[in-house]
Computed example of a mutant assay.
Amino acid sequence: MVMTSNLKKWSRSIPLALCLTGALSVNTSTAGSITTPEILASSLCLDCIDYQVIGMCLWMTCTPLGCDTDTSIKVKHRLPDMVAMSYLNTGEAPWQATQWMSPTTPGAKGGGSSHKRSPTLLDNATVTFQNTDIIGHPAEGTFFEMLSSFGYTLEGPSTPFMPYYLSSLDTLGWRFNIPDVFNVSSWNPLTNRLGNWGSVYPRGGFSIQKQPYKSAAMAAYKASHVVTRPMQSRVYQSLIADKKQGYWPPEAIGEKDDETFWQPLYPKQEMKAVAWPDIDDSTTTGDPYAERISETGEYVWGVWRTYRGCEQKGAMLVAHFGN
């Protein structure tokens, strides 16, 4: 079901202090694989930010005495909008501070391979299942303090520690593919694919993919695909920035997406971000993704998205150039 208005009011009214309190007081049976300080440190990534001055904007302000014009630079850079996690067992999210958000529930079981039952009745060794959480990146304060040293910067829509998607709360959508199973995109294997990693639809936790890293990545991608779109018949909180004068946020995540970049945080943290899929292994004999496989079945990525904009220097934007 679409997230109700009450849930939206709830999400808007949560003070950040409450999220931080829950994060600090967590006491679960598993210690978690990555901590908030580690995620904060990962955001100090120049390659991920990719700050560029790309053009100019022309502004105009008119009064009864006449019109004045002014210019401002147009910039492009990425923002760490979300942390995406794929993992096997509910209640055991790899980010320690957020485990309390998605506890084990009767309707949301653990994941792994070779299940006795899958929604599409595809019961074989290549069918895998992952739980997935999408959480607002915690780097808002420290990140923007560093980013301001570049000059003019843009803000994104993300709220730190906000749970935008918790697969344990979206049982019908994530485990039973409802309503995506009725979408025509779910029945056409030639469209809506992320390279040779797998099909985007149906956007659930099951994948026909025996390579563990690709399977986990597809789960994170599908959840991000939902979150960056409005009015999906799922239990989620949308993460969308509205266009306005002098501000051009990224479009929804899609195939052949050059606006969204994924920074590995666990099992191995890297100070770079790449667009998926970043390796063409269609003609290779080995497995170039083998070194990315997590022994625990847990994966965490920082999701960076590209924003463009310029400082408002007038009442009306009359022209701009640069992409």
Rank of each mutant, 00 (worst) to 15 (best):
208 I>R: 14
235 V>L: 04
228 T>F: 00
235 V>H: 07
234 R>M: 14
214 K>F: 01
235 V>G: 12
222 K>H: 01
231 M>F: 15
242 D>W: 09
232 Q>N: 13
240 I>W: 05
222 K>C: 01
211 Q>P: 05
208 I>W: 11
243 K>N: 13
235 V>N: 15
241 A>K: 12
241 A>F: 07
211 Q>K: 05
230 P>T: 03
234 R>W: 13
210 K>P: 12
239 L>Q: 01
222 K>D: 00
223 A>N: 02
214 K>H: 08
233 S>D: 15
209 Q>N: 09
232 Q>A: 07
229 R>Y: 05
219 A>C: 06
223 A>M: 00
219 A>Q: 04
208 I>E: 14
222 K>M: 07
210 K>N: 15
225 H>E: 00
242 D>S: 06
232 Q>S: 12
222 K>V: 04
215 S>E: 10
218 M>Q: 08
235 V>T: 13
208 I>D: 13
218 M>I: 09
230 P>H: 09
237 Q>N: 14
232 Q>H: 07
208 I>C: 12
240 I>R: 09
219 A>Y: 03
212 P>S: 06
239 L>T: 07
239 L>S: 04
232 Q>E: 13
215 S>H: 08
222 K>N: 04
218 M>N: 03
217 A>G: 13
210 K>E: 15
243 K>E: 13
229 R>P: 06
229 R>S: 02
223 A>R: 01
238 S>V: 07
243 K>Y: 11
243 K>R: 14
234 R>G: 11
216 A>S: 10
